[in-house]
Computed example of a mutant assay.
Amino acid sequence: MPPADDHYVLPPFAPARAAALRGRLGLTLGQVAWAVAAYCGSPVHPGLVEAWENGTATPESGHVKALAAALWCSPADLVGEAATLAQCRTVAGLTVSETATALGLTRGQWEDAERRDRWQGTPAQTDALLRVLCPPPACYVAACGNSARLRVLLREAATTWWPPYAEALARIVPLDPALLRHALERLHLTYQRWEGAAGGSPREAALAEARAADFLERVDLYLWHEIREAVNPPRPAS
């Protein structure tokens, strides 16, 4: 856990993860509340823990750490995907100094990267960043300042023909090129289905046009969804 003088910032709390972990451990809301209170040194009502699990209340970072202790897990197990370099470091459980050393930077250089949420390291430092902090692809692309470029590339690939854009995508997103080609093809097929529906009735055509426009507006989010589905396919219902 980073020391008090380091910026400690976790990704957004994931209520479903907390509820699932408590369920697997067979703990009651009261038991978890008691453990959180013992860790924090102040009373915690079982209703508050239930609100965290329902998503109607959001725990502060101190409560997330206490909840993790109560559920015998890491705080990283109770949060969503990291979206910034600072969040990546916090999830990795590293101090600013440890991170800087591991990446071949000075402390000041890494502090500046966190403050601006921008990454401009050398190829060797970038390899270390990907290995040590394992930033999610969306976080890495944003930190490199390539989000706008990515959206343009994806829109062109979806609306024209995707194969010529696969190599350019691989230069932006640090993932297996085969995985990226699969995701790019899926995006293209999805958009083309909505384009094809534009020849139906006026109502169907308008709906398809709206969906196609929304797809292009959020095409990068669809890319990340396709990648997550490929890496962690949904389990079949039992």
Rank of each mutant, 00 (worst) to 15 (best):
Q109K: 05
V49N: 08
P236E: 13
V91F: 12
V96H: 07
A100H: 05
A128T: 06
T190F: 08
G121V: 06
A33H: 05
A143K: 02
Y39N: 11
V32H: 08
D176A: 02
A4T: 14
A148D: 15
R89M: 06
A4C: 04
D117F: 09
R116M: 11
A83G: 07
W34I: 15
E81Q: 09
A148R: 08
G30M: 07
V132N: 08
R211M: 06
E185W: 11
L154W: 06
S147F: 05
T126N: 12
V64W: 03
A158I: 01
H188F: 12
P202K: 00
R151D: 10
D220F: 02
E167S: 04
T159G: 01
A76T: 09
G47D: 15
L10V: 09
L187V: 00
W110L: 10
R17H: 11
E195D: 06
I227M: 09
A4I: 09
A14H: 10
N146E: 14
G121L: 07
W162G: 01
R115W: 04
L207P: 02
V152G: 09
P136Y: 04
L78G: 10
E114W: 00
L189F: 03
E114S: 07
G104I: 14
H225Q: 13
E50F: 04
N54L: 09
V64L: 07
E156M: 10
V64R: 01
D6A: 08
Y140N: 03
A83L: 11
A206Q: 01
A20F: 01
G200I: 04
V152R: 13
V141T: 14
L133Q: 04
L133P: 02
T160S: 10
A142N: 02
N232C: 07
P163R: 01
P174Y: 00
A212H: 02
Y140H: 10
S238D: 13
A198K: 08
G199R: 12
R228G: 05
S147Q: 14
L150I: 05
W110A: 03
A66V: 08
L150W: 03
A69C: 01
Y39E: 15
V219D: 00
T99Y: 02
R155N: 12
D214A: 14
V32D: 12
G196I: 02
